[in-house]
Amino acid sequence: MKRKVSVITTGGTIASKPIENGLLNSGAITGEELAALCQLPEEIEIKIIDVFQLPSMHIGFKEMLKIRDVILNEFEDPDVSGIVVTHGTDSLEETAYFLDLTIADERTVVITGSQRSPFEVGSDVFSNLSNSILVASEPATYGSGTVVVFNERIYSARYIRKVHSSNLQAFDVFGHGYLGIIDSGVVRVYQKPVNREVYKNLHKEPKVDIIKCYSGASGTVIEALVDDGVEGIILEGVGRGQVSPYMMPAINKAVSKGVHVVVTTSAEEGRVYPAYDYLGSAADLMRNGVVLGGDYNSKKARIKVAVLLASGNTIDKTVFEN
């Protein structure tokens, strides 16, 4: 009996066409057109669902919710083995983690894309899509949450980052390794995430922003966001979670107005930790009501805070401990 995989298309380079000026029209190809271009596994029954035809930077919280709803609808069919979402690579890691936090089903959700269009020499469209379908239908991957399949590797949504703007090896997971590989059409799983957390009931689309910290940075942007009604601010600090001392008055103002402020680190590996005690240090931030973001990068912390706010959950010092 054939296994069933639903392929949800949202646009991106994987569905792009060249136009007259030599540039690409991102998301111009429908799911049916894309499937016709690929040599998909014959032993798997494919259902194509076109949701969007968008560049990935046009996908925000509202669009992520729509993708989630389509996935949940597909999982109502017990015969569906897994789901593949095709997506542009620029915001792929954000959508992947959003889905990981909001879908409880043990069956695998795979997100993939490509660095080159289907019409370019050496395109990675065909291998990424075919491998993703294999992973989505593979029982050994069940219980992994949402994963990213790219360049014959399987990555956890929690730690995946885009690390190259153009190379086919576009994604990596610093310090944690990939979950498995696809070798000559065979899925091999080496590890799975230990902790999974899921938030099901999302009631609103919260406004959460990221501020990158640097030497001499002021609190001007923080003040502007607070005045604009922001609900959460992610500070991308440095090292163990330090920020410029000139930002502290604005940070304190934000916290006093009920804005949820989280500090992360721009370092590729390691956790935010109160190792120092001076104005703008992680310890100082903690004393002033800022939540330490553990080993989350700023993009993943933003997604988590948004999901927590949308589902009515508390944001406290325990949120980023795992």
Rank of each mutant, 00 (worst) to 15 (best):
L72C: 15
D69Y: 10
I49L: 07
E74N: 13
F75M: 14
L34A: 10
N25M: 15
A28E: 12
V51I: 10
F52Y: 12
E74D: 13
E43F: 08
I67N: 08
N73A: 14
E33A: 12
I29K: 01
F61M: 08
R68L: 10
G82A: 04
P41Y: 02
G31A: 14
I83N: 01
D69K: 13
V70F: 03
E63Y: 02
E63W: 01
E74Q: 15
Q39P: 03
E93R: 05
F52Q: 03
N73S: 15
G60H: 09
F75G: 06
S91W: 00
E45G: 14
V51M: 04
M64Q: 06
A36I: 05
I46A: 03
L72Q: 14
T89K: 05
M57S: 05
S56A: 10
R68E: 05
P41C: 11
I46P: 02
P78S: 14
S91C: 09
Q39S: 09
K66A: 07
I49P: 00
N25A: 15
V84M: 08
N73M: 14
L54K: 13
V84Q: 04
F61W: 07
N25G: 13
T30W: 03
M64D: 07
E45R: 13
F52E: 01
D79H: 15
S26C: 15
I83E: 00
E63K: 11
T30K: 07
T30L: 06
P55F: 04
V84G: 07
D69R: 13
I29T: 03
G27Y: 01
I83P: 00
A28N: 05
G82F: 00
I49H: 03
V84I: 09
F61A: 06
G27T: 04
K62C: 07
K66D: 04
E74W: 00
G31C: 13
T89Y: 05
C38E: 12
F52D: 01
E94S: 06
L34T: 06
C38I: 10
P78R: 13
E76T: 10
N25P: 04
A35W: 11
G60N: 08
F61G: 02
K66V: 09
A36G: 09
E74M: 07
V51N: 03
G82L: 01
V51C: 11
L72I: 13
L40P: 05
A35C: 12
L24S: 13
E43P: 06
T30D: 02
L54N: 11
V80L: 04
E94W: 00
H87N: 15
